[in-house]
């Protein structure tokens, strides 16, 4: 796959962040950007004819293992961010009865 195409995924996420009016949609847009970044990394590491990075006798050329290792970290970080964002989202809904940014920003704190 072409890196340019995966960069479009990032741009789609940015577009979504700048237009979506709902907290949950915003959370998903952040995960979309993150998936775009992960795909971008893996795209750059990958090339035609590279084997998976496991050393054995019949392997002559491997793909770069570093981006793969970095992306495991990014995925874990992403899952942590998503979990935290969603639980706060639920709590915000309990407080304000809405998950629309405009409404929760308008409503004053009840307590």
């Amino acid at each position: 796959m072409n890196p340019v195409l995966t960069f479009i995924v990032v741009l789609i996420g940015l577009y979504g962040l700048a237009t979506s009016k709902n907290i949950i949609k915003s959370v998903f847009c952040v995960t979309i950007i993150e998936s775009g970044v992960i795909l971008l990394f893996l795209n750059f590491a990958n090339y035609e004819g590279g084997a998976i990075p496991i050393v054995s006798e019949d392997v002559a050329a491997i793909v770069d293992p570093l981006p793969h290792a970095l992306m495991i970290t990014t995925i874990v970080i992403g899952s942590a961010v998503t979990a935290l964002a969603l639980i706060i989202c639920i709590k915000v809904f309990h407080h304000y009865g809405s998950t629309e940014w405009a409404q929760i920003l308008r409503r004053e704190d009840v307590k």
């Binding site: 990075p53 496991i54 050393v55 054995s56 491997i62 770069d64 293992p65 570093l66 290792a69 495991i72």
Partner: peptide, 25 residues
Amino acid sequence: NDAKLYFFEHGLDDTGSSNLITAIL
């Protein structure tokens, strides 16, 4: 690809893991 070549040549000897991603992690 300096880093890649380094991992390919030394990864197994340095860390004992043939899976280079585990070696890095």
